[in-house]
Amino acid sequence: MSIQHFRVALIPFFAAFCLPVFAHPETLVKVKDAEDQLGARVGYIELDLNSGKILESFRPEERFPMMSTFKVLLCGAVLSRVDAGQEQLGRRIHYSQNDLVKYSPVTEKHLTDGMTVRELCSAAITMSDNTAANLLLTTIGGPKELTAFLHNMGDHVTRLDRWEPELNEAIPNDERDTTMPAAMATTLRKLLTGELLTLASRQQLIDWMEADKVAGPLLRSALPAGWFIADKSGASERGSRGIIAALGPDGKPSRIVVIYTTGSQATMDERNRQIAEIGASLIKHW
């Protein structure tokens, strides 16, 4: 058993032996400061991975655009179909130039040979490839079927209504393609630790998130040596930015963190910096 498999397999085991986890309101002070700095709403939640207890939250039940963070949920739905014998990670999917949409750094290189379902999930999560996400959405029946999958998990909040890139429109008060921090954190925890997916599929999902290559300026920039993080970021119109993550010290995840912001006029660099500073406060007061 690899170190990674050891880590995921023991998450339920550690729940019975973990020390009490204490919240630190200092992080919420930073979240509120980020709102002031960005001139935008910020949603935040910090969840204990083992118990599911909410440690801190700010606007946990307000809607925010999901942006590309939905791609983790999408690959969770794909893995659920794999577990049920309805899909194979090794199945190759062929597509054409007409299928390519904006920001497809991986799929645009494989027009001649296509990509496997496994490769598409990797591209969608680690590189946020939009065509990969659309191709995967097609395999499960489209955005409405992803919403149905989430409903069956008990998440009646999170919804996907459109495809890439239209889902990134982020119109104020538009509930399409949105979630709430509390709903996203709970759903992510179920995917990573619950019985919905097999152990192998849970491991695969967290491996893809751990290999994320496009979230460096966010929480990863504040991470001390030896800490673990598996994450997925997102960005969209109207100053929207977000990240969902499982992270913790000693090389294993122990908390879920979800951060969303929307409605800012700030630059992408400034949005990144504010999220990184929230992460730094979280780690300092861990």
Rank of each mutant, 00 (worst) to 15 (best):
E210D: 07
T126P: 03
I244R: 01
P65D: 02
S2C: 11
P172H: 09
L79I: 03
N168I: 02
D33Y: 15
F70G: 03
S254V: 11
I259D: 00
A200L: 09
T158F: 03
P65N: 07
M67S: 05
I140S: 01
S80N: 13
I206M: 15
R271L: 15
E145P: 07
A245Q: 03
D113R: 11
N272G: 07
W163V: 08
I243L: 09
A211T: 08
A266Y: 07
M180Y: 09
A132E: 00
T187M: 05
D212S: 06
Q88F: 13
I283T: 06
D207V: 10
L188K: 00
S80D: 09
A124I: 00
E87H: 00
R118A: 13
L111A: 11
R41M: 08
E175F: 11
D161E: 05
L192A: 05
P143R: 13
R41Q: 09
R273I: 09
I275D: 00
I259L: 08
A40E: 09
F70S: 06
K71R: 01
P181T: 02
L136E: 00
V8R: 14
N173P: 09
C75N: 00
A183S: 10
A215E: 05
N152G: 14
T178A: 02
S57V: 07
S122N: 12
P224G: 04
L223F: 04
E237R: 06
H151Y: 14
L219R: 01
Q37A: 14
N98E: 14
E210A: 13
L197V: 03
W163R: 06
L136C: 03
N173V: 06
K252L: 09
I283Q: 05
R176N: 07
A225C: 11
L223R: 04
Q97Y: 13
L55V: 08
I244Y: 02
W208A: 02
V106A: 09
S122W: 11
F17C: 12
L137K: 00
H110R: 09
R81M: 08
S96L: 12
G76C: 04
Y103N: 07
Y260T: 00
L219W: 01
M268S: 06
Y44K: 02
D99R: 08
A40I: 06
A182P: 04
L219P: 02
L247M: 11
D99I: 09
I229Y: 01
W286C: 15
R41L: 08
G251A: 08
E62V: 07
D129I: 00
V8S: 15
I256R: 00
L282V: 11
T69I: 09
I140F: 08
E210V: 12
D177K: 02
A40D: 08
A183F: 07
D129T: 00
T262I: 07
K213D: 10
R81T: 05
G216S: 09
K32N: 07
G251L: 07
L146Q: 00
A245E: 03
F17Y: 09
A246I: 13
E169I: 08
P12F: 12
S80Y: 13
K284M: 09
N152T: 14
H94R: 13
D33N: 13
D113P: 07
I278R: 00
T179P: 01
A183C: 07
A183W: 07
R63P: 05
G52Q: 04
N152C: 11
L55R: 07
L219G: 01
F6L: 13
F228C: 06
K190L: 09
Q37R: 13
F22I: 10
P253K: 06
A170T: 13
E87Q: 06
R41N: 08
S80C: 10
S57T: 09
K53A: 14
M115T: 02
I171M: 14
